[in-house]
Write a protein that binds this DNA or RNA. Structure first.
Length: 255
DNA sequence: AAAACCTCCAACCGCCAAGCG
DNA sequence: TCGCTTGGCGGTTGGAGGTTT
């Protein structure tokens, strides 16, 4: 906790008190989120816009869940982290009631120490989960950051049934998952389509067989996720980088 | 009882991208 | 095109409170 003090501009720092919380909450409930730069001026709060935004998002916002993460929340977090990396806001957007800060803190205090320990003390009986996967001349399909997909909308990233990846934008809302470009003719195998459906849609679906996730060992590879369908000996995989979510189907070329 | 140590998490910092004039 | 402002994000910090010695 940072001690209560003020910076060179006379803005207060450190823990918020109940009065400040009330001023902020009342203002946002009346005028809505977004106009952060106006809040200090309009409410008289002696806080910077960033501090106001953070306090609202991480603490004052309605429906924030507190306390320990449930088993299913942790499971979802692990799966999403494998795809998205340290994109806490995207991960939090898929876990109702949890903030990016919550997810990040939980990861840093509970999961990361465990995984570091596992790396230093590998269990001989357990297969290594982070065995590198060779990336062979990937064809890239880029999903970038300008199209919003929110948790409140059903259509997210889904296959359209023909093996093509499609997306739709949301109608506003928070915790957006942002994707701007999806190739309309990326061919997916059935198992992967189902996995994406389950992951990015609210429907529950059964996936038969295994989808194997792994990370490379170099820093560049560590930022990416490869999904390899080894069961059918296909070299199909996806590669989601940190800077842009990359789509790399190895054999997606239509004849 | 108290000092030392550890864990958790709220809050800050710095950076980046978008929007606008 | 450029510079400024703003919103948003991930990484990091450090104090509170709990636990151990």
């Amino acid at each position: 906790m940072i001690p209560s003090s003020s910076n060179g501009l006379g803005l207060k720092k450190g823990a918020w008190n109940a009065h400040e919380d009330k001023l902020l909450k009342d203002y946002i409930e009346q005028y809505g989120e977004g106009k952060w730069h106006l809040i200090p001026r309009e409410t008289g709060l002696n806080r910077c816009r960033k501090s106001c935004r953070l306090r609202w998002l991480n603490y004052l916002r309605p429906n924030i869940k507190r306390g320990d993460f449930a088993e299913d929340e942790v499971d979802l977090m692990l799966r999403l982290h494998k795809i998205l990396g340290n994109r806490w806001s995207l991960i939090a957007g898929r876990i109702p009631g949890r903030t990016a800060n919550d997810v990040k803190n939980y990861w840093n205090t509970h999961i990361q120490p465990r995984s570091k320990q596992q790396k230093t003390e590998p269990d001989a009986d357990e297969p290594l989960q982070d065995a590198p996967v060779t990336v062979i001349n990937p064809q890239q399909y880029t999903m970038s950051k300008t199209q919003n997909l929110s948790t409140s909308n059903k259509a997210q990233i889904v296959s359209n049934g023909d093996g093509n990846l499609i997306s739709s934008s949301n109608e506003g809302g928070n915790n957006n998952f942002n994707v701007s470009y999806l190739s309309s003719n990326v061919l997916l195998d059935e198992k992967t389509k189902k996995y994406l459906d389950e992951l990015f849609d609210d429907r529950e679906m059964e996936i038969e067989g295994d989808i194997e996730w792994s990370f490379g060992e170099s820093s560049a590879q560590a930022e990416a996720l490869d999904v390899v369908d080894q069961e059918e000996d296909k070299n199909r995989f996806f590669d989601f980088s940190l800077d842009e979510i990359m789509w790399n189907p190895m054999d997606s070329q239509q004849p």
